[in-house]
C-alpha cells in the first residue's frame, strides 16, 4: 500500500493553500475532499481578500481552482473522509470506498452551518427553510419570514430581507442581539421587523411547505405564521473525523503557532481549528503555515 508524505483533508481556502505550498515543495501528497471551496462558495460579497476589491465567493473559488490546477495536484474530489486512525508511526485515512496511508496529515475540513435540531427542520429543508439568505431571500417577496439568530449573519439576513419581505420576525435565544451595534440599531428602526429575544424555536410546521413556527418566550408557546425561515445560528467545526488530538470546548482542534496538533505528524489549519478570526484570508495563511510545518517535520523524521 502506498505511503504518502502528506494527505490534506479538505479543499477550502486552508486546504488549497496548503496544497499549493506542498506542490511547490514537491511533496508526495494528495488532497481528499468532498468539494472545492468549502463555505467560501456560499459567501456573496467578499471585500477583504487582498488583491480583489470585490469578488463573490463562487468567483474566488474558481480562481482558487485555476491556481491549484497550475500544479499537477491530485485532488480526490467527492470523497468524504470517515475517520483518521493511527497506524503505528503513520496514519490511516478511510473514505467510504478507499483507504490511504500517510506520514503526515493536514486537517482543513472547515465548518458547517449549525442546525436548529427541532421538529420539522429536516422535513421542510428547501421547502421554506433555508441556510443561505444570499441565495434564497428574493424568493420571499411580500411574504412573512422568520430569521433565527441575532448574530451578524442573522442581522445580515434581516437587512437583505427588509427590502423584499412583508414582515420579518427576528428570533434570538439570548436576552439580546449579539451582532454589531451599528447593524442592530439600523434593524431596530425598520418597522416591519419584530424582534423576539429570550426566545426559543421549538417546532416548524406546515403542509407541503412551511406554514409557521412555534416559539417559547417566558414559558409561553406562541405560534407565528411564516412562509419562510432563515436559519443563521452560527457554525460548528467538522472535527469529528479524528479523536486522538486535543480539542477545545467548541470541538475545535487545538493548534500551536506552527499548526501542530497534540499528536505528532497531525497538523490542522483554518476554521476547524481554534485559530483566532475565522476569515478566508486567515485560513489561507494557516494552510500555508501547516504545509511548511509538515515539510519541516518530515525533514527531521
Amino acid at each position: 500500500m502506498k505511503l504518502y508524505e502528506l494527505i490534506i483533508i479538505g479543499a477550502g481556502p486552508a486546504g488549497l493553500t496548503a496544497g499549493i505550498y506542498a506542490a511547490r515543495k514537491k511533496m508526495d501528497f494528495i488532497i481528499i475532499t468532498e468539494d472545492i471551496g468549502g463555505m467560501t462558495k456560499y459567501s456573496w460579497d467578499i471585500e477583504n481578500y487582498l488583491g480583489y476589491q470585490f469578488i463573490t465567493g463562487p468567483e474566488l473559488v474558481e480562481k482558487f481552482r485555476e491556481h491549484i490546477n497550475e500544479f499537477n495536484v491530485e485532488i480526490r474530489e467527492g470523497q468524504k473522509v470517515i475517520e483518521v486512525l493511527k497506524d503505528e508511526e503513520n496514519f490511516k485515512i478511510s473514505t467510504k470506498t478507499d483507504t490511504y496511508f500517510t506520514k503526515t496529515i493536514i486537517i482543513a475540513t472547515g465548518r458547517r452551518p449549525k442546525e436548529l435540531n427541532v421538529k420539522g427542520e429536516k422535513e421542510f429543508r428547501n421547502k421554506g427553510i433555508t441556510y443561505c439568505a444570499t441565495c434564497d431571500a428574493p424568493l420571499f417577496r411580500d411574504k412573512i419570514v422568520g430569521v433565527i439568530g441575532g448574530g451578524n449573519s442573522g442581522l445580515d439576513a434581516v437587512l437583505q430581507l427588509s427590502r423584499i419581505a412583508k414582515k420579518i420576525y427576528l428570533i434570538e435565544i439570548k436576552d439580546h442581539l449579539t451582532g454589531d451595534f451599528f447593524v442592530i440599531n439600523k434593524i431596530k428602526k425598520i418597522d416591519k421587523v419584530e424582534i423576539f429575544t429570550n426566545t426559543k424555536v421549538v417546532e416548524i410546521y406546515g403542509d407541503k411547505f412551511v406554514q409557521g413556527i412555534k416559539i417559547i418566550k417566558n414559558n409561553e408557546i406562541i405560534e407565528l405564521k411564516v412562509d419562510g425561515l432563515f436559519v443563521e445560528i452560527g457554525s460548528i467545526p467538522n472535527s469529528e473525523i479524528i479523536d486522538f488530538v486535543e480539542k477545545n470546548q467548541y470541538n475545535e482542534i487545538i493548534v500551536d503557532c506552527k499548526n501542530r496538533t497534540s499528536h505528532k505528524g497531525v497538523f490542522a489549519a483554518g476554521d476547524v481549528t481554534n485559530v483566532f478570526a475565522k476569515q478566508i484570508i486567515v485560513a489561507c495563511g494557516e494552510g500555508a503555515k501547516a504545509a511548511i510545518s509538515s515539510f519541516e517535520y518530515l525533514k527531521y523524521l
Partner: peptide, 10 residues
C-alpha cells in the same frame, strides 16, 4: 434563478 444566488450564476 435569483439575481443574488452564487450557484445560479455558476
Amino acid at each position: 434563478s435569483t439575481k443574488t444566488c452564487p450557484y445560479c450564476k455558476l
